[in-house]
Computed example of a mutant assay.
Amino acid sequence: MIAPAWPPSAAPGPGPGGSRAVRHARLSWPLSPVPVITKYFDAPETPFGPGHRGVDLAAVPGQDVLAADAGVVVFAGLVGGRPVLSVDHDGGLRTTYEPVAAKVAVGEQVYRGQVLGTVLAGHPGCAVAACLHWGVRRGEEYVDPLALTGEAGEYRLKPWGGGR
């Protein structure tokens, strides 16, 4: 059985006339127009294990990075020598963006779609001119950002208990 990566709150549901429509997404895209995904989320098997704790989005250097939802900037600085920006949102979500030249400061309230900064070139492993790494945590757990946009991430085969 193939299971989509979206949570039930964002999953398509029956709409008028029995059609299926996507409900309001929890987060909006941090780039406009909707970017090409160059690397998908890959949850680590253990808290410190290998994985990809976000998605990489194709961008151009200097492109605006947009707040995925209303929140408060909680970090704007260097992590491992790379410029990172983090925003806390209602419901225990934290979005992180890198590499970004910040245009907002720690403690600043931001609104959904507000320009947070601009994409910088130099994200490791990026196959295009620039990539924005976009990560999301709920508490201490990393989650697939695509699941919160109403988009399906990569599909994964799940065991089906029907057994034949």
Rank of each mutant, 00 (worst) to 15 (best):
141 E>I: 12
125 G>D: 01
5 A>C: 00
129 A>E: 14
157 L>S: 06
76 A>W: 06
48 F>V: 06
161 G>P: 03
151 E>T: 12
7 P>L: 07
149 T>Y: 00
156 R>L: 11
55 V>D: 05
119 V>L: 12
16 P>Y: 05
111 Y>L: 13
96 T>W: 04
151 E>V: 01
99 P>I: 02
93 L>V: 02
105 A>W: 00
21 A>K: 05
131 C>G: 05
119 V>I: 08
6 W>S: 01
145 P>G: 07
73 V>I: 14
89 H>Y: 08
32 S>Q: 13
79 V>D: 14
56 D>G: 10
81 G>N: 10
96 T>A: 15
7 P>I: 03
83 P>L: 07
115 V>F: 01
161 G>C: 00
146 L>W: 08
46 T>H: 10
102 A>P: 15
38 T>P: 07
162 G>N: 08
37 I>L: 14
101 A>H: 08
145 P>M: 09
114 Q>G: 05
162 G>V: 09
11 A>Q: 06
148 L>W: 06
134 W>M: 00
48 F>G: 05
120 L>I: 04
101 A>T: 12
111 Y>H: 12
126 C>N: 02
83 P>W: 11
12 P>N: 01
106 V>M: 09
40 Y>I: 00
6 W>M: 08
117 G>L: 03
47 P>I: 05
98 E>K: 09
149 T>N: 04
93 L>H: 09
160 W>I: 13
75 F>Q: 02
106 V>P: 11
121 A>W: 11
2 I>N: 01
148 L>R: 01
87 V>N: 13
110 V>K: 04
51 G>N: 13
44 P>Q: 11
102 A>D: 14
53 R>G: 06
140 E>C: 08
98 E>G: 11
133 H>A: 04
47 P>M: 15
154 E>F: 07
26 R>E: 06
141 E>L: 15
43 A>G: 09
2 I>P: 09
27 L>C: 02
110 V>D: 01
31 L>E: 02
81 G>A: 15
21 A>C: 00
136 V>H: 05
59 A>Q: 06
54 G>K: 05
22 V>S: 07
24 H>K: 11
24 H>P: 08
88 D>T: 10
156 R>D: 14
14 P>E: 15
40 Y>G: 09
18 G>M: 04
4 P>V: 13
63 Q>R: 10
19 S>C: 10
45 E>K: 12
97 Y>F: 12
102 A>V: 03
79 V>T: 08
160 W>T: 08
136 V>T: 14
85 L>Q: 07
66 L>C: 02
92 G>C: 09
5 A>N: 00
94 R>C: 12
157 L>F: 13
76 A>P: 10
15 G>K: 01
116 L>R: 05
19 S>N: 06
152 A>C: 12
28 S>P: 00
63 Q>D: 04
151 E>L: 04
156 R>Y: 05
44 P>H: 14
3 A>M: 15
72 V>E: 15
86 S>P: 01
33 P>A: 11
54 G>T: 07
109 Q>M: 03
107 G>V: 07
52 H>W: 10
89 H>R: 08
36 V>T: 15
141 E>R: 15
117 G>R: 00
106 V>C: 09
4 P>H: 02
160 W>H: 07
111 Y>G: 06
66 L>Y: 01
45 E>L: 11
77 G>L: 01
164 R>Q: 04
